[in-house]
Design a binder for these strands. Structure first.
Lengths: 136, 136
DNA sequence: TATAACTTTGCAACCCGGTTGCACTTATTA
DNA sequence: TAATAAGTGCAACCGGGTTGCAAAGTTATA
């Protein structure tokens, strides 16, 4: 059973305002990542800057993470409950070149890489491009 | 022995104009990837649109490839001689969070991933974030 | 060689995602 | 309740990317 949006926000130390609960709801209903422009369209009323700052707050508190699939606007998706956005939590993302949807493949961790001498690793972004199951 | 820029362009079916040879030279001298804004700064004279179109032409003809390291402008780097930008030619990129330089790790191929059922793979972008040997 | 056809370049303008300043409203706290 | 802080809305701006169009340069054709 999933907990209430309000609790989910509190758990991440985000003050639960009406606006934020609405945005969280959209993010929760969404199976794929969503960009700021897309989010704007989902709200007739809300202001771009507010939504922008909401996403930034969510990201900072690790409620969501950002994905740059290279197709323009950055997209955002919910983190898993236990996620702390550390290297261990990283997963592969998939971008469908047909429907332009971007998926979190939570079950596929980012493979490890052996870097050249004296290169140290902080994080990894891995985006697979292709056709998703829906478009096949 | 490296061949003349002019030949390098011809080999990729790019008409070798003065402009293009200059841009190719900059790209060749560069050890790390370069963005359009950075390229602009290297030329006092040349126009942004021309440089933009030059890069697009180079990319289309697979003389260079683009890298989006998530820090803003897209960067470009020379392909290897034999590169055809197919999945086999893909390599890992490294972005240094300190000096903001982006490296092609040609010797590190992108690891393979097992996608979920009915997801098909066309390409992969893998960018490792960290500190490079120079900044260490 | 002259002319026509095409390609490349330069300039200007535009688009769009992202970001910030500031005033106003809403919550918190003393 | 007054004072303070946090959140929101509006407007404006920035910067990378992109396009239209005319001028300059190149190539092909008669």
């Amino acid at each position: 059973m999933s907990e209430k949006p309000e609790q989910k926000l509190r758990k991440r130390n985000i003050k639960p305002t009406a606006m934020r609960e609405l945005v969280l709801k959209v993010l929760t209903d969404q199976k794929t990542a969503i960009s700021l422009p897309e989010l704007e369209q989902k709200f007739e009323k809300a202001d771009k800057a507010t939504l922008y700052r909401t996403l930034k707050t969510f990201e900072k508190q690790k409620l969501i993470h950002s994905i740059d699939d290279g197709t323009g606007p950055v997209k955002y998706a919910l983190c898993l409950e236990e996620c702390s956005c550390s290297v261990n939590d990283l997963h592969v993302h998939f971008h469908c070149t047909k429907c332009n949807k971007t998926y979190c493949l939570h079950e596929i961790p980012v493979p490890s890489v052996n870097l050249p001498k004296n290169f140290s690793l902080e994080s990894v972004d891995m985006v697979v491009q292709g056709i998703c199951a829906n478009c096949k």
